[in-house]
């Protein structure tokens, strides 16, 4: 590895939380509108995001570039680690290994998920209004639903545990007690965000999303 791995690793830790962690929370809240307020609520969430100024620039600078850097460098970090769970069965050591496994799962899942949703909008197969019905198709297929469930749980664990490690790597939680308390808070974050995503997926299964999809199809056939 050329260059200074201190900077790359530090940057890897930073972009994992800012902006990626921030985006992850916004994404969870937007999706949750599908459960809380149905198709219209989700649609409003999508509209709100689309109304942001300089959206393509924001997407590249705040999401795609950090995501690629964090993902690819993260694979290298995972490759550099051994798992010694056989000899050291401690909670934190489990989290260490899980952080790397969930990182790899999330890497694959995010590519697949972006291909199924945002990429389809880019190539013009679907419109922003049809994202709800696309998600309905995804969530009602039992196999894809389960894969999505694994994907969101992996991503959420990786985010929550990564937040705990971020606080240590930047020297915010130093003492043992601070790290213990922050680990409890981060596991709380894991539970809350995981529930948000799971309920969103359940919400997308609702028939009202199918009806919206039918309506869109009907409009399309008329046009």
């Amino acid at each position: 590895m050329k260059g200074n791995s201190y900077f790359s690793r530090k940057l890897h830790s930073l972009v994992g939380i800012i902006p990626l962690g921030g985006f992850f929370i916004v994404h969870a809240l937007t999706n949750f509108q599908a459960f809380e307020r149905g198709p219209e609520g989700f649609q409003n969430g999508v509209k709100l995001i689309n109304s942001l100024p300089l959206l393509p620039v924001l997407e590249f600078i705040l999401i795609y570039i950090p995501l690629l850097f964090h993902g690819i460098y993260g694979l290298y970090v995972a490759f550099q680690s051994n798992s010694n769970l056989g000899r050291f069965k401690y909670g934190r050591n489990w989290a260490f290994t899980a952080q790397r496994i969930t990182g790899v799962i999330t890497f694959v899942f995010v590519f697949w998920h972006v291909y199924q949703t945002r990429f389809q909008v880019y190539i013009g197969n679907i419109s922003h209004e049809e994202l709800g019905s696309t998600m309905h198709k995804i969530a009602t297929d039992p196999l894809i639903f389960v894969l999505y469930l694994i994907g969101v749980l992996a991503a959420t664990f990786h985010f929550a545990n990564g937040l705990w490690a971020f606080l240590i790597s930047w020297g915010i939680t130093v003492g043992e007690r601070a790290q213990r308390i922050s680990s409890k808070i981060c596991m709380g974050v894991f539970v809350v965000v995981a529930v948000l995503f799971i309920l969103s997926l359940v919400g997308f299964r609702g028939n009202e999303f199918k009806e919206v999809a039918d309506a869109v199809m009907a409009v399309r056939s008329i046009l």
Partner: peptide, 11 residues
Amino acid sequence: DGGIEGCGNSQ
């Protein structure tokens, strides 16, 4: 290179 950043917090 190979300094403190190598810590992965397995503790």
